[in-house]
Simulated scan of single mutants.
Amino acid sequence: MKVAFIGTGSMGGLLIEAFLRSGALHQSFICISNRSQQKAEQIAGRHPGVRVVTSNVDAARESQIIFLCVKPLDFPGVLSEIKDVLTEGQIIVSITSPVQIEMLERAVPSRIAKIVPSITHSVQSGASLCIYGSRIQPEDRLLLEQLMSSISTPLMIKESQTRIASDISSCGPAFIAFILQRWAETAAEMTSIDRADAISLGAQMLLGTGKLLTEGGLSPEELQRRVAVPGGITAEGIAILDLGLQDVFSKLIDATHQKYNEDLDKLDILFNETFDDY
């Protein structure tokens, strides 16, 4: 199975490295192209056998699965470039949330899937969000989910849920890391603990908490009840968090959805300008 990656930036490079480390893909079956060929050559240098090509057309022409790992506003240009070599039997996988399945299906003849990854896949963890177009066959879905299962837990969602699901699975690691950073910095300022020690403790706590909520079968409410004894220290802390976080998540969701909708509007204009029959 030949797999192409168009775009080897942050997430494209992460996916290539993760698939190779997991053994899901062999170097000889991967073809990559990138606007900056140096980045692609660096990946090939670490993984002899990975083929670097100088054009997106060459990457797309002979591949069964084509991962498009470019910025949302670059999609119309890339699709316009490769559409003439695409066939109905190929699978195009978009990894970006704002580009809609309908946009892609109207632009190219191939089967379309949208799989939104997470930085957590670099350690073979986290959820990958899977949305499938109308042309995807059951065997296509099985193939894609077997591939993603090697580095993540595939979760099928509705396209209307893409933004909020991405907030949690894809943006979430950055949000949680930001909270841990602030917590550790404040702890170091107010007490004798070292910032690095506080971050290390927090990282181990997050790892264990994730396991309790998955492997341990606990719900968030059950976990809180197990730790927060009424009238105890943890209960006092939760009361402070409850008060301080009342509007935080609604504001966060409003902000991410506003940016998402802005991107949708820009993409709609670009697709209409790029494809005459769109």
Rank of each mutant, 00 (worst) to 15 (best):
P173E: 00
D140S: 03
H121F: 12
R141G: 11
D194I: 00
I136G: 04
T186V: 10
P117Y: 04
A184N: 01
A107C: 10
S192N: 12
S149L: 01
A107D: 07
A127C: 13
L143V: 05
G172P: 01
A177T: 05
R182W: 04
H121P: 08
L147I: 07
P98Q: 06
K114E: 07
E145S: 09
I193T: 10
M156Q: 14
S170A: 15
V99A: 03
A107I: 03
S150R: 06
S152I: 05
Q124S: 14
S192E: 15
G133P: 02
K158Q: 15
T162I: 15
I112P: 02
P138S: 07
L142K: 14
S170R: 02
M103A: 09
L144W: 06
V123Y: 11
R111P: 00
S192W: 09
M156A: 14
D167T: 06
S110K: 04
S166Y: 03
V99P: 02
E159C: 07
W183T: 13
R182Q: 14
L180R: 01
A165T: 11
E145C: 09
S122D: 11
T162H: 03
I115A: 02
A196Q: 13
Q137A: 11
S125Y: 08
Q137V: 08
G172W: 00
A174R: 05
L155W: 10
V99K: 04
T120D: 11
P138I: 05
I151Y: 01
A165H: 10
E139K: 11
F175H: 10
V123S: 12
I179S: 04
D140V: 04
I179T: 06
I112R: 03
T186E: 15
R195S: 07
I157H: 02
S152E: 08
I193H: 05
I168P: 05
D140I: 01
R195P: 11
L155H: 10
R106Q: 14
R106Y: 03
R106G: 05
G133H: 01
S134E: 15
S150I: 03
E102T: 12
I157E: 03
M103Q: 14
R195D: 06
A184L: 05
L143G: 02
Q100K: 15
E145N: 13
V123I: 15
Q124C: 12
L104N: 10
T120M: 13
R141S: 12
S150W: 05
T162E: 12
R111Q: 07
D194T: 05
T162R: 07
T162C: 14
L143T: 11
V99C: 06
P98I: 04
T162Y: 07
I112S: 03
A177F: 07
Q137K: 14
R111M: 01
Q137Y: 07
T191W: 06
Q100R: 15
